Simulated scan of single mutants.
Amino acid sequence: MGEWETYVVRRAGRLVGAARGRLEGDTWEIGRIMVAPDLRGQGTGRRLLEHVEAVAPPAATSYVLFTGAASTRNLRFYKRAGYRLRPDLDGPPGAVVLSKRRRAPAAG
């Protein structure tokens, strides 16, 4: 099992968001994207997701994450970010797995 890289967002010392990622083969697993409840809807989660995707090692060809099957807000958020449901992949009980191909870097 790979080691998790953890990223946090603080405002005035307060922990207001966090996300983590780890490389498993050629897949960058993203986990535990969290935003303080009173700050949701302000773009913190989107910026965390963008950041954890951006710091994926060059070997990563795709991203994968899971969320609660009944978490309609989370599902909508991830789908807007380009993730698609993966019924062929097993997640924890009560969860669904989503994935997204990593874009190839732009030619310089």
Rank of each mutant, 00 (worst) to 15 (best):
G91R: 05
P93G: 14
T6P: 00
D88C: 10
L98N: 01
A107S: 09
R20A: 10
Y78L: 11
L15C: 09
R20M: 14
W4I: 10
L65A: 01
V16L: 09
V9R: 13
A19D: 02
R103F: 00
S62W: 04
G68H: 12
R10G: 01
V55I: 15
E50D: 08
V96C: 12
V52I: 14
A56P: 12
P92Q: 15
V35R: 04
Y63N: 02
G21F: 03
W28N: 01
R14F: 03
E50A: 14
G17D: 03
T67F: 03
L48W: 08
V52C: 02
S99A: 08
A95T: 13
L23S: 13
P37A: 13
A104G: 09
L89K: 15
Y83W: 03
G13A: 11
R10E: 14
E3C: 03
P92D: 14
V52T: 12
L48V: 13
I33L: 00
L98H: 02
A81I: 01
A59E: 15
R47H: 15
A95V: 06
W4Q: 05
A104P: 03
R101K: 12
R10M: 05
D88V: 02
L23F: 10
E3G: 09
R47W: 04
V55S: 12
L65D: 05
A18Y: 01
P87N: 06
E50I: 03
G43L: 13
G108N: 02
R14L: 12
K79H: 07
L39A: 10
P87D: 06
V16F: 03
N74R: 12
L75I: 15
E29Y: 07
L89W: 10
V96E: 01
W4E: 15
G94Y: 08
A54P: 02
R102H: 03
R103N: 04
T67A: 10
R80S: 10
G17I: 04
R11P: 00
S99I: 08
S99Q: 11
P92T: 11
V52R: 00
G82R: 11
M1T: 14
G21Q: 06
A12R: 05
T72N: 06
R14G: 04
G25I: 09
G25R: 11
A104V: 05
A69H: 11
E53F: 03
F77Y: 08
G2M: 10
T27H: 01
G108Y: 07
K100M: 02
M34D: 09
T6S: 02
L23Q: 14
T67R: 09
R86L: 02
A56M: 06
E53I: 05
L23N: 13
P105W: 05
V96M: 13
G2R: 13
L39Y: 06
W4V: 11
A36R: 10
V16R: 03
A19C: 09
A106R: 11
F66K: 13
P93A: 15
T61P: 00
G43T: 15
G13D: 07
A81P: 01
S62H: 12
D38W: 12
G68C: 14
A69V: 08
G2I: 00
R80V: 11
R102K: 13
R103L: 04
R22D: 07
